[in-house]
Design a protein around this nucleic acid. Structure first.
Lengths: 241, 241
DNA sequence: GTGACTCAGGCTGTATACAGGTTGCATCAC
DNA sequence: GTGATGCAACCTGTATACAGCCTGAGTCAC
């Protein structure tokens, strides 16, 4: 593995785990020493993380760990809904590959299994992976590299991704009902794409993202569950320091 | 100005003007010599251009000038329509700053003036700048940095931008009718945002982007007008080498 | 006590040297 | 003539040296 990629992955981990605090300046020499690489690959890694959004370029040069206002995450999730709606609409209008749809249906079954009460902790973990895969397949079904790239950029922020709040749901009381609704959305969007119901497919994915918005609000008022959100430490909450 | 920024701008120009051919490999030493800089800033510039999409990373390392299939541009324009529709909807739902809307209305008047027959060549040039500004203000009206950033990324490709095909229209016969329709969209979306008609605002911007899609098809079958599209040389046409 | 100024440390931006890997051409065997 | 092989040139990834700039602490004047 290249030093650049290694630095990128390890830095991302340090940031998302909260080991590097939001606002903290990341000087190239200090990061280089910490990661045991030279400045050149560290700089390249910082540029890529800036593109992802985890790190912000300082006007006078250099980078600092980024933080996110609740409103920004709200907007990012809603934007994901619009983009996934766009993808679902394209898939319905243009027709999706049969293999992709078949695999989406297989995932539906496995997600049902993982979330059959009583749900174990492993069940939630499985669901997170299956859910992420389902959303990837939806993008694939649209058959557009341009759209896939754009969605990939929005989803790069972990709390804007389709699975960002699922693990936190595990400790939230209303979690099971939310999962039932989410699964219904999944099922319905596959059906809509199959039947070439473009408007329905689009509306479903928009509404689907709203579940994440609701989870965001719930999680932000529950310290314990917030800890389960990857990158949750980067969120600036309203009325907090 | 930094060497990196200078290299980025000059490389972009070389690519969009066609001086560097699509598919051509851009080795760091050769580019560095051509631009009179060292490899370090050239590499940084290439990374940024790769993010923009003008340049593509080669799996085994290095970069090459990118090219675009007609379908990709089609998709990029439709995606822009969806994103601008999203912005217009947000502006209508949340309310846009009065100053922004006032300036949009002022631009409407100036665009009308620039396109009053007989339209001079300068008229078209003015219209391009005014139109670009109008679309920027629309994004501003949404009041979301997340959305603004995302739209900025789609619009980075010149032929996906709102003004990508306007200059080419100047030599196309149906140009004036298209401009009339485009202006009607502009006027209507301002009205929709003012009246908080979110669904209407969104639908209008989607339809607005379709004008660019139509122009794309017209331009692709007219060599003369294609030359007026910035970056047109990067477009791979169906059934062409 | 407060504000401006100076200076030192550190940082970024840039250039360049070096090692490992890849590519493509030429040559050789069949 | 064709395919495999070896070599040479080149290129990327990385480390590091150097210059200019910024920042922040400490000091001095008022």
């Amino acid at each position: 593995m290249s030093q650049t990629l290694s630095a990128q992955l390890r830095l991302r981990d340090l940031i998302l785990s909260g080991e590097l605090q939001p606002g903290e300046r990341l000087s190239e020499p200090s990061v280089a020493e910490r990661l045991g690489a030279s400045r050149t690959p560290v700089r390249a890694a910082l540029v890529r993380l800036a593109e992802e959004g985890l790190v912000k370029a300082i006007p006078s040069g250099g980078f600092a760990v980024n933080s996110f206002a609740e409103e920004e995450i709200h907007d990012a999730i809603e934007l994901r809904g619009t983009l996934e709606g766009h993808a679902a609409r394209l898939a319905a209008e243009r027709g999706a590959p049969g293999g992709t749809l078949a695999e989406m249906r297989r995932l539906l079954v496995r997600m049902d299994e993982a979330t059959t009460p009583p749900i174990s902790e492993d069940g939630f973990t499985d669901y997170v992976a299956l859910n992420a895969h389902f959303h990837e397949l939806l993008v694939e079904a649209a058959g557009s590299a341009v759209v896939a790239r754009q969605i990939g950029r929005v989803v790069a922020l972990p709390f804007a991704s389709p699975s960002g709040f699922v693990l936190a749901q595990a400790v939230l009381p209303a979690s099971q009902r939310v999962l039932v609704v989410a699964q219904e959305h999944h099922r319905a969007v596959v059906e809509a794409i199959e039947h070439r119901e473009a408007a329905r497919a689009e509306a479903l994915m928009r509404e689907h993202a709203r579940l994440a918005r609701r989870n965001l609000e719930l999680v932000l008022h529950d310290q314990d569950s917030l800890r389960l959100v990857r990158g949750g430490v980067l969120i600036r909450r309203r009325g907090w320091a």
